[in-house]
Design a binder for these strands. Structure first.
Lengths: 245, 245
DNA sequence: CCAAAAGTGTTGCCCATACACCCATGT
DNA sequence: ACATGGGTGTATGGGCAACACTTTTGG
């Protein structure tokens, strides 16, 4: 194999620049983050990420990277920070562990490219977890959702990226009314409340929360949701069209 | 001159990745931004920027770039966004205007490197304008402060960068108590008020502002400042040490 | 004493919180 | 009828804005 030709196709990408995504989903009253078990090495967990093509803008690159993993288009995305300490990759144990495997699978040039020093643009994404169809990426063994308070040890600085992503989400959720991106089309007020409680890891009182939400005039009340439980049936709500972000 | 060797020294930097800084200063009741007249071409205005060395972290690179322009160390810096639409540089008229000049001054390889597609990390910086000693950078004809509401047409997407930088400053100023970075050590309450008015382009009432600031318990009252004016002399204040950011 | 501007006190409003209560649902 | 949880109304307190007032300064 020729050492000067990339098998992976590195020429089409920006060198030393990557995107890492903190994809948030909400399920069973918990806020979860999508992560991948790395295909090579042992027990290496990483965020879904990828590279930026030379003729692609950054947001589109992130959309493409996430479409490949989730099958979803037009995901809500927010750039929140750039990560690039000198030793994110080189000083990590991951590098030694996978260098040989990458050289075998691709070629030396690719392994060097992939394991050079990278600066990574952090995005967070909000998805309706029920609409996601997980599909592994080039370097993923499998993908899985993990609750934000049960994040395992992760490769490189990916734990820090999740942390800063969550901070940014907390800063923006209420201000920009982003929560609806994590829920299905219709939802009860209690489900919305529980989403907020999951994100902020703190309890809110139902009636005041309801008043605040209804005062915003962005929700339309639909029919009641009869669950068969012996109590008053809650109303379903939907975000009025013009307020979708 | 050898086309394969860089005169400018591009090998030491991350390719296609730059930093652009929106440096804010406050003077004569106005919020100002530092900008440079580009050394080549005609009437091209750019933000102070630069590149990231291979062995340097991002924040340090920004500090270095600004130290070179202002003589200040440990400037307050905040990364606020990445800019990288496909056509920031290529589609701009600036490219054609300066390509030949750059080829002459450096070499073709350098001109190509400098005018390739760049993704730029936007920082905003807050400085005490009186402490700044302006010094031109490699590509600057001269540097100057411009009021935020009098920004000229700028090269590439630098107007957008300033706009987003100002939005970020407005979001952070009060929350993170950053205003003091724009003022000298000691200041009157009115000066602080006027700084806020300049940043938010809106008036605040003196007594309520004063109450809010004093309630924060982060200011210590010093001696009065006698200006010779025939009115009550205002107190000087200083941010108490532990609250410096 | 007076004009100018600094600094303080008082009131009312809005919003978030806490508490109490009423309503629908299925057994 | 009643337990369960959804949904609404009312009082309380803190923070902010508007207004009125007192204090200091140099002429």
């Amino acid at each position: 194999m020729n050492n000067f030709m990339s098998v992976f196709g590195t020429e089409q990408y920006f060198p030393q620049l990557s995107i890492d995504c903190v994809v948030f989903g909400y399920e069973e009253k918990s806020l979860k983050v999508l992560m991948a078990k790395f295909k090579f090495g042992k027990n290496i967990w990483i965020l879904p990420g990828g590279y930026i093509k030379q003729n692609e803008n950054i947001e589109n690159a992130a959309q493409r990277i996430l479409f490949d993993r989730t099958g979803l288009e037009k995901i809500y995305l927010e750039q929140f920070r750039v990560f690039g300490s000198e030793n994110r990759v080189e000083k990590s144990s991951v590098k030694d562990e996978i260098y040989d495997t990458l050289t075998e699978k691709f070629c030396k040039a690719d392994a060097d490219w992939i394991l050079s020093r990278f600066i990574s643009i952090g995005f967070y994404a909000l998805v309706d977890i029920n609409k996601v169809n997980l599909k592994v990426g080039e370097f993923d063994h499998f993908l899985t959702w993990v609750e934000v308070d049960k994040i395992p040890n992760m490769a490189y600085d990916h734990e820090e990226i999740i942390e800063k992503g969550l901070e940014s989400l907390r800063r923006d959720l209420d201000q920009k009314l982003l929560g609806f991106n994590l829920l299905p089309e219709t939802f009860t007020m209690k489900e919305l409340l529980e989403l907020y409680e999951a994100v902020y890891n703190k309890e809110f009182s139902m009636n005041n929360f309801q008043k605040k939400m209804l005062d915003l005039k962005i929700l339309e009340r639909l029919e009641k949701k009869f669950t068969g439980a012996q109590n008053k049936a809650p109303y379903l709500y939907r975000l009025v069209e013009s307020n979708h972000i």
